[in-house]
């Protein structure tokens, strides 16, 4: 009769192992890896890798098809210490999944290595109702909504572009919105800057913006930053956010945000408008061009309205 030790040794012959650093690197590089947590649901809820889908060991062969569409898709399996998932990975190999690795040391080693984990926070009844239409979208679902609730987006400018962006991100349940703007509300803003109302004239835009966003969705933590973005504060401000949305109204700020985001490795969702024309693009460091690739030099002063 085979012992457990023999079975693990057999599995190790065919299943390669990767440590936390290597798996983290692959995920950070945007590799389309399917990460499966084969522990029981209560273990998963107590903490898991952000990218992980939970399929308990007992159901793995039955449900793996729903998580991994193609037998050659890269798959990483893990359990608590790396033993259960080693046997599970062997089972997937036997089913014909060719690109399966085991997370060496499991969840325990991942945590000890200081890697980030997610703890499942159950949604309230209000949240389940508020986001019910998102749950119907297979690309969002319960998992996506929780991800949005954990996400942090910085909005540079609470004006014409920042207003609708912030409105929709708050409605969608993006958990933390940084609202950065050093201006106060002026009556001339109101024909387009929809976060602010007539009663807000003279108040800081971040104040009226925060009130409007909280009224729409109290789930959202609005961080009010009543200052202009400058070379001295930009790195410190952006470091706390997953994503930066540039809704600024001048070239100086755009070059500054572009450079800071590139240097900090942050993706910058860019938008700008002039009269009846607008444009939008995404600057993702090292995945595509930056604002300077597009506009190596600022436009001549004549093009810039005061």
């Amino acid at each position: 009769m085979k012992t457990l030790k023999d079975m693990l040794a057999d599995a190790r012959q065919v299943v390669p192992e990767e440590g936390p650093a290597e798996v983290a690197r692959r995920l950070a590089a945007g590799e389309k890896v399917v990460v499966i947590d084969v522990r029981d649901p209560d273990e998963y809820r107590d903490g898991h890798l952000e990218a992980a889908t939970n399929i308990s060991r007992g159901f793995l062969e039955f449900r793996v098809g729903s998580a991994v569409s193609d037998a050659s898709t890269p798959v990483v399996l893990y359990c608590q210490t790396g033993l259960r998932s080693m046997l599970a990975a062997k089972a997937l190999k036997d089913l014909g999944y060719s690109n399966v690795v085991n997370l060496q040391g499991g969840y325990q080693k991942w945590v000890q290595s200081g890697m980030p984990v997610i703890r499942e926070v159950p949604m309230t009844q209000d949240q389940i109702q508020r986001y019910s239409r998102h749950f119907l979208l297979p690309q969002v679902g319960d998992k996506g909504q929780k991800k949005l609730l954990r996400s942090k987006v910085l909005l540079i400018g609470a004006g014409g572009l920042g207003s609708p962006t912030a409105f929709y991100l708050a409605a969608a349940g993006v958990g933390t919105l940084g609202l950065m703007d050093g201006d106060t509300v002026d009556i001339t803003n109101l024909q387009r800057q929809i976060l602010h109302t007539t009663a807000d004239i003279g108040k800081p835009k971040v104040e009226s913006g925060t009130r409007t966003l909280k009224a729409l969705n109290p789930d959202v933590d609005v961080i009010s930053l009543p200052t202009r973005i400058t070379v001295d504060n930009v790195m410190d401000v952006i470091k706390d956010y997953d994503l930066i949305v540039d809704g600024s109204d001048n070239f100086e700020t755009r070059y500054l945000v572009n450079d800071a985001c590139f240097l900090a490795g942050k993706t910058n969702v860019h938008g700008s408008i002039f009269q009846f024309e607008g444009m939008a693009t995404v600057f993702a460091p090292n995945q595509g061009p930056c604002y300077r690739c597009l506009y190596p030099t600022p436009p001549p002063p004549g093009l810039v309205p005061s």
């Binding site: 991800k147 949005l148 996400s151 987006v153 004006g159 014409g160 572009l161 920042g162 207003s163 609708p164 962006t165 409105f167 929709y168 991100l169 969608a172 993006v174 387009r192 800057q193 929809i194 997953d242 994503l243 949305v245 809704g247 993706t267 969702v269 860019h270 938008g271 700008s272 408008i273 607008g278 444009m279 939008a280 995404v282």
Partner: peptide, 16 residues
């Protein structure tokens, strides 16, 4: 700005 800002919001959610 509503059109462009809404595109930015859509892109933000897709990226997240």
């Amino acid at each position: 700005p509503g059109v462009v800002g809404t595109i930015q919001a859509t892109e933000a959610v897709k990226l997240l």
